[in-house]
């Protein structure tokens, strides 16, 4: 059996929009290995860099915020990003647990 796991992040996104904030929705769309959060997990980020929810166990959230701020600034409507184990590129983050995760970032507008 399964229970529905609605963490009400979308409801919160709606509240942020009502408060005239720019909102990016991050969704876990794919995982490989032992990634900490299941597919469908959400996080929202506003133009000030405030965030709510999570896409991993705190492993890549900072990078997701940074990437979100970048796409707000460049006015990119959506973007897919991936994080791997000991990712040696720009972020210096990655999943210590050995998992991989793909995240879809999209502007809500």
């Amino acid at each position: 059996m399964k229970n529905s796991f609605d963490e009400k992040i979308l409801d919160e996104a709606s509240d942020w929009l009502k408060a005239k904030q720019t909102v990016i929705l991050a969704t876990v769309i794919q995982t490989w290995g032992s990634s900490p959060r299941p597919v469908g997990s959400h996080m929202i980020i506003n133009d000030k860099g405030d965030f709510s929810g999570s896409v991993t166990g705190g492993c890549v959230e900072t990078a997701v915020v940074r990437e979100s701020l970048k796409i707000i600034k460049q006015n990119i409507p959506f973007k897919k990003i991936e994080f791997k184990v000991s990712n040696e590129n720009a972020w210096e983050v990655g999943l210590a647990c050995g998992g991989e995760v793909a995240i879809f970032l999209e502007h809500i507008n």
């Binding site: 979308l10 929009l17 959506f78 879809f104 999209e106 502007h107």
Partner: peptide, 28 residues
């Protein structure tokens, strides 16, 4: 995601029915 879709999702949740959000990752 369009704001219109988000509003529709919030309303669906209030209606207490099962549904799914479908996203085309190629065009958003």
């Amino acid at each position: 995601m369009k704001k219109k879709l988000l509003d529709a999702v919030i309303n669906k949740k209030k209606e207490n029915v099962a549904f799914a959000i479908i996203t085309n990752l190629e065009n958003g």
